[in-house]
């Protein structure tokens, strides 16, 4: 596969196309690619999911571990999100110490999940002040054709919704042999999702292919949910890259995000078990 980035000619072409509301794959500027979700990527995970968003593929696994609570939050379980940009997934990803993008991806997922309080961490206490559950989410891209973060967001919530808390044996150790039927406690009605807007020229698009993503000059990631099933609520945000955004653009996103969220949630629900 190619190591050559999107050319400046193609970038200029995309500026013209976006200005005319067109994309190479025929989508509208604010239209996501179709996606599919599969479960049970690994039966060794307490929950897992694979999302294919166009040709982008991300797998997420959830492991549950017994740990001590953090001293400043003795009354709740712990959450940890990690992951790596496997060199398997793209000619751009290299082995060795993680680059910024590899650090940013799990951090964005972490903030969206943590701030939405979708995981009821207070229900993850095993012994008050001594032992709690740690939820560890690992995010791995398998094929990068752009917009890994939004695919990772979908895979994460799908995996969490199918995560079981393992049984403990008499000594308080995890019993990997017996099958648990106890689901990870999630906040009723809250489904956080990630949406990232990308900017090229004066246009904003969502869900870029890799070619489009490489051409774009600015981006901003939003974590949003239908908070407790009540109303749209933003939980996290991070503007990336050097290009500034205008107030009009920010307001435009606030107008379009709820519909994007509702449409995607509807599609997601078809895959929920």
């Amino acid at each position: 596969m190619s190591s050559m980035n999107t050319s400046s000619l193609t970038q200029e072409m995309l500026v013209r196309m976006f200005a005319a509301g067109k994309r190479f794959d025929g989508r509208k500027l604010l239209e996501m690619r179709d996606f599919t979700i599969e479960y049970n990527v690994s039966n060794k995970a307490e929950g897992s999911a694979r999302v294919k968003l166009g040709k982008t593929e991300v797998v997420v696994g959830v492991k549950m571990e017994v740990a001590a609570p953090y001293p400043d939050s003795l009354d709740k379980g712990n959450l940890m999100v990690s992951g790596d940009l496997l060199p398997l997934a793209s000619p751009r990803f290299e082995s060795g110490p993680p680059k910024f993008n590899a650090i940013e991806l799990p951090r964005l997922v972490d903030r969206m999940i943590r701030e939405s309080h979708v995981i009821d961490l207070h229900k993850l206490i095993i012994k008050e002040g001594e032992k709690v559950w740690t939820v560890i989410i690992d995010v791995y891209p398998i094929n990068d054709d752009g917009n890994l973060i939004d695919a990772a967001g979908l895979a994460t919530i799908a995996a969490l919704m199918n995560t079981y808390i393992p049984n403990l044996d008499e000594a308080g150790r995890i019993d990997h042999e017996s099958k648990s039927t106890k689901k990870l406690p999630l906040t009723e009605g809250t489904v956080p999702l990630s949406f990232t807007f990308f900017k090229l020229g004066d246009s904003l698009i969502v869900d870029p292919t890799r070619e489009e993503e490489e051409a774009c000059e600015g981006k901003i990631n939003w974590g949003i949910s239908n908070w407790k099933g009540k109303e749209h609520m933003l939980h996290s945000c991070q503007k990336g890259l050097e290009i500034p955004l205008t107030r009009e653009e920010i307001e435009f996103m606030m107008q379009t995000l709820p519909k994007l969220y509702d449409d995607t949630l509807k599609k997601l629900k078809k895959f929920l078990k």
């Binding site: 690994s42 060794k44 995970a45 897992s48 797998v59 696994g61 959830v62 492991k63 571990e65 990690s82 992951g83 790596d84 060199p87 082995s95 560890i136 690992d138 791995y140 995890i174 990997h176």
Partner: peptide, 17 residues
């Protein structure tokens, strides 16, 4: 060649890397 386990491919989570 690079061989590795995904962290959630085994019962006790494997530390990445």
């Amino acid at each position: 060649v690079n061989y590795d386990l995904l962290s959630f491919s085994v019962s006790d989570r494997k530390k990445p890397g």
